[in-house]
Nucleic acid binder design. Sequence first.
DNA 1: CTTGAACCTACAGTCGCTGTAGCTCCTATA
DNA 2: TATAGGAGCTACAGCGACTGTAGGTTCAAG
Lengths: 149, 149
Amino acid sequence: MMEQSYTIGRLAKDTGCKVQTIRYYEKVGLMPTPDRTAGNQRRYGARHIERLAFIRHGRQLGFPLEAIRQLLRLADSGEQPCDSADSIARSQLQEVESRIARLLALKAELNRMVEQCAGGQVADCRVIEVLSDHSQCLHVNHLEPEEAH
Amino acid sequence: MMEQSYTIGRLAKDTGCKVQTIRYYEKVGLMPTPDRTAGNQRRYGARHIERLAFIRHGRQLGFPLEAIRQLLRLADSGEQPCDSADSIARSQLQEVESRIARLLALKAELNRMVEQCAGGQVADCRVIEVLSDHSQCLHVNHLEPEEAH
DNA sequence: CTTGAACCTACAGTCGCTGTAGCTCCTATA
DNA sequence: TATAGGAGCTACAGCGACTGTAGGTTCAAG
């Protein structure tokens, strides 16, 4: 009913989010469906900006979309206690802490590998050797099967 | 030509890798195609075990499959200097270090959020509030758009 | 010889986007 | 008012690294 004045491109620019990503969030039900112009283009208002900022901020904090969905539900129905939000955040914190622990072990291992590599022939390459023979490394549990990158 | 005596299931058990994953590695050209029985089942030998162990170890160290592919090429053609292997490992180390840095910033932010949440109504919930308003957090750059989990 | 666990292929789904193709719309300028 | 072109639209494929499923076949123990 108020001015729904932002195009999707404007919204994208304002929140540092790609246009396709906004449409994706709408498709998976994180963003409410906006008004459309006569020509079928989306027009957004202030609440959409807030909503998208919330989502992006949650993503930057590493929350999976499902957690963000729950947090949005909690934020919308402002009556329940915030214990739920707290426990979502706590479990995200735990996740982050365990990721850090694993990455630190990893870093130590990679350091060892790289420092021992004398730059000679592959026959003597520590990097290849360590990878070939797990017993040569300190058997920290590295990463659990996690996607790289 | 020697005893190709391991079934895919055995190989999986020995290396802590799922059967489908081994078939996947074969499909994407990381594992060499094994011999087959008359009934078309895969049979593996010692070199396959070594190869798979190399791949898994690389994955545990967080190397993407593409890096592992390069490392395997280097290991196979044992003549070239190991500078390449070294630089692959170094860039993986850098990647890991930057991930750690980002996660530490993240952890601080989540800690702040969680500690301030008094367990009251959503109206006062710090978790939701901080997510809603980026200016309330310390503007560390969090994570760059990274997939969660 | 029978049973059933393990194998086979092929393909869909996961997560969170990102990119592309092939259109239509909106708006600024001439 | 006509036109150009940037921005929007939908639908779908692709990424990485698997994982799961359906529907069938093979192997080895009893």
